[in-house]
């Protein structure tokens, strides 16, 4: 469905025209075998804990999602209305696949799952997120994460 031809014309054109940043670098970091990697999720779904202030338009900050936070206490505050949320209503793993990662860890396919995941407002220009990238990277390193899984909505 996310083939561009399948998206309604207004949203499609906006996605085609989106000014993606370009980078002069092509970083490529090595790491241990997958069965020894600790995995963390970085989601653009603007997830918040129940009771927290939602992400607002243009927010360039980040929030953390503890791996053991109950799914019933996680809400999605992304400002866009142009993506599906009916699937999220039925299953949090569609966006934040913590149960699936736990299963992969239990069978030994990955080394482990981080205690903390990260989330940002996906509609914000990433060029405004330099400080956020610094902070998320520092948080991932502090936990010994060797595989960041970036998930959009």
């Amino acid at each position: 469905m996310a083939r561009l031809d399948d998206i309604n014309p207004a949203t499609r054109q906006r996605l085609i025209d989106l000014d993606c940043p370009s980078f002069d670098i092509q970083p490529f970091v090595d790491g241990p075998p997958l069965d020894r990697r600790k995995v963390a999720i970085v989601s653009s779904a603007a997830l918040i804990g129940r009771g927290e202030l939602p992400f607002l338009p243009g927010a360039a900050d980040f929030r953390t999602v503890p791996n053991d936070r109950p799914a019933s206490d996680i809400l999605m505050s992304h400002i866009s209305v142009n993506f599906d949320r009916h699937g999220w209503v039925r299953d949090p793993n569609l966006v934040l696949p913590r149960d699936r990662l736990a299963e992969l860890a239990a069978e030994g396919a990955i080394g482990g799952v981080a205690d903390t995941h990260f989330t940002v407002m996906g509609s914000t220009d990433p060029r405004e997120m330099t400080a956020t990238a610094d902070a998320i990277a520092a948080g991932l390193k502090a936990e010994g994460v060797t595989a960041a899984l970036l998930l959009p909505v």
């Binding site: 490529f28 991932l140 970036l150 909505v153």
Partner: peptide
């Protein structure tokens, strides 16, 4: 998420991006 993924990789974190818009993955 493509850009943030590259920014994290540049800071020493191995990343994989699951992408819904291939065009953006290619641009970044």
């Amino acid at each position: 998420m493509s850009a943030l993924g590259l920014m994290l990789e540049a800071r020493g974190i191995p990343t994989v991006v699951v992408g819904l818009i291939r065009l953006h993955m290619e641009k970044v």
